[in-house]
C-alpha cells in the first residue's frame, strides 16, 4: 500500500494574463502573470484516494490538468510509477497514457453530443489499439453493465440520458483503457445529491474491484471526507496542509483548514455555533506577501506578513503555518 504511484515535485504553473501587446505599450503596463499553482509537492500511493480541496482560485483543477497533460507545467516534475511524464515525447507517453484517465465535472459537456454512447466508450480502446471488431462491442457492453447501464444503451446518444447516467457513461469511458489511476475533477458537483450518492458509491465499488487509485478534486469537504484516505488543502495555489483524512477533520493544523471546516453547514443540527468566517479570497494576480492567508487569519503574527511559511511535518502529514514553527506557538483551541 505504501508504493508511490504518482509523485508531484515543485509543480508550478503561471498563466500569462497580460493585455494584448498594443494595449500594454499604450497604457505602459508590464506583462502580468497569474500563478495558479506554486511549488506543489505530494505523493499518491497505490490504491488510495488522495483528495485536493480548495475554493475557487486555489489551483486544484490546474494541478489535475497538468497531471493528465492538458496543461504544461511552468516548473516542476510529475512522475508516474517512477517514470517522468514528458508529454512532448509521443511514443514514450503512449504506454503511460493508457494507465491514467480522467473523469470530468460536467457530464453534459464531457460526452460529444454527436457520438453514440458506444463510440464514446470505445474511443480509448481504439486509440490505444486494445481490441478489434466484435470484441470492442462486447467490451463496451461489459463496461456499460459494470457502471449500471445496459449494453443496449450503446446505440443511444448522450442527450437521451440524465445527468447521473451520463456520468456513468463518462466513468465507463475512463475505465475502457483499463487504467490504474483516475483523476476525478469535481465528479459530482454538477449532480443532485441523491444522484451524487449513486456516483460516489459506484466509484468506491470500482476502486475495490479494480484496485484503482484516485486523485479527487473537490470543493465539498463532506464528499472528500467520505471518499478519501489522504487530503491536501490548497489556498491560492499553495498546499497549506496535507493530512490523513480522519485526522484532518478531528485536528486540523492550519487555520485555513479550520475555517473551511467551520464553513460547512451543520446538517446534524447540533447547535454548534460556527466561528464567523471573515473576508474573501484575494486576487490571485497579486496575492498577499508572506503567508497568503494572513489577511483572513485569526492568529496572524508579524512574521506571517513577511515570510512565507515552509511545510512542517505534523503528526499526520504536513502543514505550512508559522504557528507550528518554534517562532510561533500553537494556540490551544478549546472549541472543536
Amino acid at each position: 500500500m505504501s508504493d508511490v504511484l504518482l509523485s508531484v515535485q515543485g509543480l508550478t504553473r503561471r498563466f500569462d494574463v497580460s493585455k494584448p501587446w498594443l494595449n500594454r505599450v499604450i497604457e505602459r503596463e508590464d506583462r502580468q502573470y497569474l500563478t495558479a499553482t506554486a511549488d506543489v509537492s505530494f505523493d499518491i500511493r497505490k490504491g488510495e484516494t488522495f483528495a485536493l480541496v480548495g475554493e475557487s482560485g486555489s489551483g486544484k483543477s490546474t494541478i489535475a490538468k497538468m497531471i493528465v497533460g492538458l496543461l504544461e507545467p511552468s516548473a516542476g516534475e510529475i512522475r508516474f510509477d517512477g517514470k517522468v511524464m514528458d508529454f512532448a515525447s509521443g511514443a514514450a507517453m503512449r504506454a503511460l497514457r493508457r494507465r491514467f484517465q480522467m473523469i470530468f465535472q460536467d457530464p453534459f459537456a464531457s460526452l460529444n453530443p454527436r457520438w453514440r454512447v458506444g463510440d464514446i466508450i470505445a474511443e480509448p480502446i481504439h486509440t490505444f489499439g486494445l481490441l478489434k471488431g466484435a470484441e470492442v462491442t462486447r467490451e463496451v457492453g461489459r463496461l456499460l453493465d459494470l457502471v449500471g447501464l445496459s449494453a443496449a444503451d450503446a446505440e443511444k446518444f448522450p442527450h437521451e440520458f440524465s445527468g447521473g447516467q451520463r456520468q456513468r457513461i463518462a466513468i465507463a469511458r475512463a475505465l475502457s483503457s483499463r487504467p490504474e489511476f483516475i483523476v476525478c475533477d469535481e465528479p459530482t458537483s454538477a449532480l443532485d445529491v441523491s444522484v451524487q450518492a449513486q456516483i460516489l458509491n459506484l466509484m468506491r465499488d470500482l476502486q475495490d474491484e479494480f484496485g484503482l487509485t484516485y486523485l479527487l478534486i473537490s470543493h465539498d469537504l463532506s464528499v472528500v471526507r467520505h471518499m478519501s484516505t489522504r487530503i491536501g488543502v490548497l489556498y491560492l495555489g499553495r498546499l497549506v496542509e496535507i493530512s490523513d483524512a480522519k485526522r484532518l477533520f478531528i485536528d486540523p493544523q492550519h487555520p485555513y483548514t479550520r475555517l473551511l471546516l467551520d464553513a460547512v453547514p451543520d446538517l446534524a443540527l447540533s447547535g454548534r455555533r460556527r466561528t464567523p468566517v471573515t473576508g474573501e479570497i484575494p486576487n490571485p494576480i497579486a496575492p498577499p506577501p508572506g503567508c497568503a492567508f494572513h489577511p483572513r487569519c485569526p492568529h496572524v503574527m508579524d512574521i506571517c506578513r513577511k515570510q512565507r511559511p515552509d511545510a512542517i511535518p505534523t503528526a499526520s502529514g504536513q502543514a505550512a503555518c508559522h504557528l507550528l514553527t518554534p517562532e510561533g506557538q500553537k494556540p490551544r483551541e478549546t472549541t472543536a
Binding site: 445529491v193 441523491s194 477533520f249 471546516l261
Partner: peptide, 24 residues
C-alpha cells in the same frame, strides 16, 4: 428519508451512502 441519507456529512461514518435508485 432517501435524500437525507444520500448526503455525506462531516460526522457520518458509514462506508456507503444510502442511495435512492434512479433519478427524478
Amino acid at each position: 428519508v432517501g435524500l437525507m441519507g444520500s448526503i455525506p456529512t462531516l460526522t457520518q461514518t458509514a462506508e456507503r451512502l444510502t442511495q435512492i435508485p434512479g433519478s427524478m
